[in-house]
Computed example of a mutant assay.
Amino acid sequence: MSNHDDPDNDPWRGHNKSLPDLNDVFSDNFRRFKQILPGGSPSSFVILIIIILLAGVGWTALYTVPSDSVAVVQRFGQYIKNVPPGLHLKLPFGIDTAKIVPVKRQLKQEFGFATPGANDPYQSPKGQEGQRETQMVTGDLNAALVEWVVQYRISDPVKYLFEVREPSETLRYVSESVMREVVGDRTVDEVITIGRQEIESEALLKMQALSTKYVMGISIDQVQLKNINPPKPVQESFNEVNQAQQEKEKLINEARRDYNKVIPLALGEKDQRIREADGYRLKRINEAEGDTARFNALYAEYIKAPEVTKRRIYIETLQAVLPGIQSKIIIDESTNNVLPLLNLDAQQGAKP
Score class of each variant (00 low, 15 high):
218 I>W: 04
225 L>R: 03
211 S>R: 07
152 Y>K: 03
208 Q>A: 13
204 L>A: 04
94 G>E: 11
152 Y>T: 03
130 G>P: 01
159 K>L: 13
128 Q>A: 12
150 V>W: 04
203 A>N: 10
206 K>C: 08
189 D>I: 03
216 M>C: 06
180 R>D: 15
168 S>G: 12
220 I>M: 08
194 I>M: 06
175 S>Q: 07
97 T>Y: 02
216 M>A: 03
124 S>K: 02
112 G>N: 08
194 I>L: 07
152 Y>R: 05
98 A>E: 01
132 R>M: 09
115 T>M: 12
101 V>D: 03
138 T>A: 11
133 E>Y: 14
174 V>T: 12
100 I>R: 02
124 S>A: 14
91 L>H: 11
214 Y>C: 01
103 V>L: 10
109 Q>S: 13
204 L>M: 03
188 V>E: 04
194 I>K: 04
97 T>A: 00
170 T>H: 05
136 M>D: 05
124 S>C: 11
156 D>Q: 15
155 S>P: 15
103 V>D: 02
178 V>N: 06
180 R>Y: 11
98 A>W: 04
157 P>G: 08
192 I>S: 05
211 S>A: 15
201 S>V: 10
171 L>M: 07
114 A>M: 12
150 V>C: 04
155 S>W: 14
155 S>F: 15
162 F>D: 15
199 I>E: 04
106 Q>W: 00
96 D>H: 08
223 V>M: 00
224 Q>R: 05
96 D>Q: 12
176 E>F: 13
184 G>L: 02
105 R>Y: 13
156 D>P: 11
205 L>P: 00
210 L>C: 01
150 V>S: 03
117 G>Y: 13
106 Q>I: 00
155 S>C: 15
111 F>Y: 08
168 S>L: 10
196 R>Q: 14
109 Q>E: 15
133 E>Q: 15
207 M>A: 02
209 A>C: 09
130 G>V: 02
115 T>N: 12
134 T>D: 03
204 L>D: 01
214 Y>P: 03
139 G>Y: 00
218 I>F: 10
109 Q>A: 13
180 R>M: 13
166 E>T: 08
193 T>R: 02
129 E>Q: 08
204 L>C: 03
209 A>W: 09
115 T>C: 03
128 Q>N: 11
165 R>I: 07
98 A>M: 04
182 V>H: 11
110 E>W: 13
169 E>V: 07
122 Y>P: 14
163 E>P: 07
110 E>P: 00
95 I>K: 10
144 A>M: 10
134 T>C: 12
131 Q>T: 06
207 M>T: 05
196 R>I: 10
92 P>T: 05
190 E>Y: 01
